[in-house]
Nucleic acid binder design. Sequence first.
DNA 1: TGTACATCAGTGAACGCGCGTTCACTGATGTAC
DNA 2: TGTACATCAGTGAACGCGCGTTCACTGATGTAC
Lengths: 227, 227
Amino acid sequence: MSAANLRARVRAEMTEEIKTVARRHLATDGANLSLRAVARDLGMASSAVYRYFASRDELLTALIIDAYDAVGAAAEEAAAAASAPLDKWLAACHAARDWALANPHEWALIYGSPVPGYQAPQDTVVPATRVLLLLGATLAEAHQAGAVAERPPVTAGFVQELAPIAASYYPEMPPRLIADTLAAFFQLCGAISAELFGQLNKSVEQDRRGFFEFQMRGAAALAGLTG
Amino acid sequence: MSAANLRARVRAEMTEEIKTVARRHLATDGANLSLRAVARDLGMASSAVYRYFASRDELLTALIIDAYDAVGAAAEEAAAAASAPLDKWLAACHAARDWALANPHEWALIYGSPVPGYQAPQDTVVPATRVLLLLGATLAEAHQAGAVAERPPVTAGFVQELAPIAASYYPEMPPRLIADTLAAFFQLCGAISAELFGQLNKSVEQDRRGFFEFQMRGAAALAGLTG
DNA sequence: TGTACATCAGTGAACGCGCGTTCACTGATGTAC
DNA sequence: TGTACATCAGTGAACGCGCGTTCACTGATGTAC
């Protein structure tokens, strides 16, 4: 509440405002976002943006981190509101899809084609894993509760390959379930991207939500998650 | 072989050469491909390219159609060389992945985020369906041969929604299998894109081919395709 | 077979535009004595 | 409480660049009589 804090707060608000406008611009420019256009929309000189972000890439990074966090938070919240494992699973998937439909260009930014010339810094790694970890946690919980069907184990090579992930995140989980989690997550991304990137046009037009759920129930079934 | 034909042939070769160089540029510029840069690489004035393509978008369209056709042809060829249904299925999937690994930027062009401001013309629709139709045909064939497990039917809404596809492409196939085909195709795209767009970094590093096959066997299983 | 004409690939300059980033600066706000 | 100083958000001009597209043109190649 001191003067210094006020200054910091105004600064934080301005930073947010720049990001908000930049997010809007993702829609028209895609990933080759223009700093100047953002500044123009804010009614400020393009050079002023450099008080807040050292470069265009740094602004992009901020948008990417925010997007990962937003979709992650949405999925976590939805999963937390459900109780049965399969319900949690489907709630998380639907929440991710709903978020993607509401923010298609942010989805494209994080799960679409890589931005040419952009190198994601280390800070994006942790937020990027939130949805994946949530699916894994849901499956791990179901597994402990005995709600996951027994499945043939994966090969020894995979066991070794997945060992670091197992050690860091899921010490109790058999490697097979980790492989299933990864596969399910990619199924989730694939289903959402297919819908967002237009591959459903001319095939599924009416009940896309239903078709998505069909796919996510399939993903759950592959992971041994019984209804 | 007449003089007119010679001129036409030279023109066709030049057109191919422009596309080849443009494909190379996809790697650095992504979808915001620069006509001038392509012309520069060819040692010609940028205006000369307009003798061959009416606009940048038209060049992009040509690249997109070629890419769809290339991955489609690769998958078809691989499938034709196999005989058992599951072998055909896996061969097609691996061929698509191999093509994508060899041509990552073309893959991104057709299955990645849409190019901002680009509207795909009608000509791209048919080539875009080749891989999907191949998966469907493989499944249809297996179904006729009795190699597809019986599965619960889809809802009446889906039956209606998928009716046009069924009528056009798979008159003999139950709607459930059409839904499975679509889902499997999106799983294929999701798995390849995940690998190409970097989401496998730090999780599966060694045996990506094996992990891909694990996923595609899953997709086949979901579609009722028995080994 | 020779000549007049048509076709058309390619040139180079220009138009009008936008971009990221830097830099010296102004002026308001906050801080220390 | 008043004053000198430091901080820092924001300005506006500039640098050096690249872009898609158009246009009047040159000159080689092919065609028709």
